[in-house]
Amino acid sequence: MTTLTLDAVSRWYGNVVAVNGISMTVGPGVTGLLGPNGAGKTTLIALMAGFLSPSAGTVTLDGEQIWRNTDVYRRVGLVPEREISFGYLTGRQFVLANAELHGLTDPGAATERALEIVEMVDPAGRRIGTYSKGMRQRVKLASALVHDPGVLLLDEPFNGVDPRQRLHLMGLLQRMGAEGRTVLFSSHILEEVEQVARQIEVVVSGRHAASGDFGAIRRLMTDRPVQYVVVSDDDRRLAAALIAEPSVVGVTVRDRGGLDVAVSDLGSFVVRLPLLARGAGVRLVELTPTDESLESVFAYLVSA
């Protein structure tokens, strides 16, 4: 059992606050760290990995301070977002070097085992410089797994990885979590996080916006007021039908045609809209969410 604990952690650079009073406990299983770009995910992972000192608060691994404590790396595997620039090494040489640095008794065997886990045994004889993004990502993962750590921290592991390799990586993370390891990965894509993690921590603008089971987070994200533009062949008739709907909180007729519709409950609105239109004998031409960016979803979570 390995638990990472952040207690009231803040990190600032001069006047800029990157992480603001975050407390969280990351235990065994897969945890997704979700947030838009620039939210402070990398800063948080750096704090958890001992590559940044907290300006306030503490970051501990099973009660042990992480900053300036190289011994914790016996239990921690880190997959940074940074590319490996050791392009002149083969994948095998790179993973082997990592195994040696951990002082393992049989670094060669550990290297082969790690390469097998990420299915990179065959290409491991080639130079890293010739690898695709997905292969580099897997070699990075192998280097982080080589000492069989209880904690695995991954910064945006799916970025730029093709869909097939992404599925493979996701499967791997789930397996690591099921084995009882504490796995934490960051992502700015909700769907990605949902597929792998049960526990989700949402970070927005350096603040801890939400924490919990993915179902609860998904509901928080979908049951929010949303703006739509609806264009139909008879906007006014549709407006009359819409305003009678409990999930609709406002309808405005647009000058250039179409309706601005404010919806309080996205979940039921998307189910009701086609039925309403058919009931009113109106043909829907266009339905566009005007406020669907992840940033606005996050902004809503923070203000909630």
Binding site: F51, T70, L101
Partner: peptide, 9 residues
């Protein structure tokens, strides 16, 4: 990339 060398005991 030195982070790979430093994340070690």
């Amino acid at each position: 990339s030195i982070v790979y060398l430093l994340a070690k005991p």
